[in-house]
Design a protein around this nucleic acid. Structure first.
Lengths: 146, 146
DNA sequence: TATAATAGTTCATATAGTGAACTAATCATG
DNA sequence: CATGATTAGTTCACTATATGAACTATTATA
């Protein structure tokens, strides 16, 4: 099997999967925010607290894009900006009570939808696929570093 | 293993992988087009010929978004619009000579970059991951249908 | 033939991205 | 310790992509 062909199959598969997930997000992330905004909220939620620069690096976008996005979420009352007292350049981002609730409620809704859909399939088989995915993710990180 | 936890791991892995690919695209798709535009060109290239409506359905976006994107590609001389003679509502989209060349050249460049990176890893192992990915893609299509 | 449906475009508007120029704060070195 | 470099974040002008409603033109159908 040629690497060339593998890459092409890989690209097709990953696009199909990603489109599928994105559709599930589009159809189920309600509450007046976009899928992108939800992704950022989710990121802050798992990190508890973080900065714009961290988000920009993690998602590989410019800092100005993050400022704009964060401002929209701030205006909706979903995150707060807290200045560091030691280093006053840094602004920490943290979910507000409303933001946490929104993330948790939406995750629950998403899980319910996905679980219903996955219930017809063999769980052990699915777990196998996901382990492969995780190894691929590790490989991707290795590739990006070196 | 709970489904809930599996989904969460899945989401993290797929995001990592997708971000990685997107970065490779961003860094390597030159030639004055965006990654989104390249994706559409690639789609038309594999289909040989298709319509705006097909693209809109495939990528789950509105027809007006496709019109805008196609217009940009048309203005760059990368695709042509051909009216159906039987049904004059339909406009077929096809790559121009320049468009085909751009897709093929860019794919070659991408493959070269990725192959270099993958060369340090076990090919059989990678093939296993990709087979898992493909099964997951099939599962995703099943989920979307039913 | 009148009415539905379909393919695609146009328009107003919102979101998300870039990169350059900027402010403010901190670091680092001669 | 002063000055220059670096860092964090914002602002601005601009572009790309997305939505949905209203529209034109064409074809299908009852």
């Amino acid at each position: 099997m040629e690497l060339h062909q593998l890459i092409s199959r890989y690209q097709l598969a990953i696009n199909t999967i990603y489109r599928g997930i994105n559709n599930i997000l589009k159809q189920n992330v309600k509450h007046d925010i976009t899928p992108d905004q939800f992704t950022i909220l989710q990121h802050i939620h798992t990190k508890k607290i973080c900065t714009s620069t961290e988000i920009a690096k993690y998602f590989s976008v410019g800092k100005s894009a993050v400022t704009a996005l964060v401002t929209r979420l701030f205006d909706k009352g979903l995150i707060e900006r807290i200045r560091d007292k030691e280093d006053r350049r840094i602004v920490y981002l943290k979910l507000t009570e409303a933001g946490s609730e929104l993330v948790e409620r939406t995750e629950q809704e998403l899980y319910q939808v996905i679980e219903e859909k996955l219930d017809h399939f063999d769980h052990a088989e699915i777990e196998g696929y996901i382990k492969s995915l995780e190894k691929l993710a590790t490989l991707m990180i290795d590739i990006e570093k070196g």
